[in-house]
Nucleic acid binder design. Sequence first.
DNA 1: AACGACTGCAACCGCCGTTCG
DNA 2: GCGAACGGCGGTTGCAGTCGT
Length: 246
Amino acid sequence: MVRAPSYDKNGIKKGAWSKEEDERLRAYIQRYGHFNWRQLPKFAGLARCGKSCRLRWLNYLRPDLKHGNYTQEEVELIMKLHQQLGNKWSQIAEKLPGRTDNEVKNYWHSHLKKCLKSKENTTCELKSKPGNSLEGNATCKFVRSESPDADVGDDFHNIFESSLPMSTETSEGDNDSLTSNVAQSTMNCSRGKEDFSVAPWVTFEEFSGDFWTEPFVAENTYTDEICSGESGAFLIPNFYDGAYLL
DNA sequence: AACGACTGCAACCGCCGTTCG
DNA sequence: GCGAACGGCGGTTGCAGTCGT
């Protein structure tokens, strides 16, 4: 399901992320935040490009993410928003707490698009995975819109209906109230038995821990050089040898 | 049991907009 | 005004797992 790991000519790793890489990235961002994606992999001791780290964090590691288990409300909201916005996945994802644009996009292409392909006045079943809260398979129906607007894409000519009690009756511009029905996620996550809150905006200045005495976990920790800035001295880690330690 | 087709989704790619020097 | 750097976005790809024969 994932790409095989490989290295490009610059020694940048591509492909599937290992558990260790995930832990390293997660630990680093939770501790220091992501001030600069391009520099982050160097500081975190990851042989990845910044974009890859950003994508991995945003789409998979963020503690406020939900995975799988699309609710009927979410399915309906995706359909409705796609009608309104088209392939603006990031905007659609904004209305779905805990979902990413990538996830919504994938879900659309793998589940919902085929429903629309079945064209007018047809029904399809959105089958759930085991444990999916989309219990008992939502039934969706698509009917041809009366709208004369011919400029929009073919998909926009369809109106989504569902077996849900709540539905497209949600008033215009009331998407916020709809999304509020979906449990608002928090930035809490757990590490072993201890719970701790995570602020994604944490910066070096705000980090309350000791940057020096609590080095980012890595083996073979050596330092390259020490720089000074407004908030005091900080380390430039030796990317190839490991991470921080003073 | 074996094998090919299909599916789902993580990850990559390339383009675009914004910011900053 | 210009170009480089960076972040964000949408489209596409690769491949493990699942399904059907």
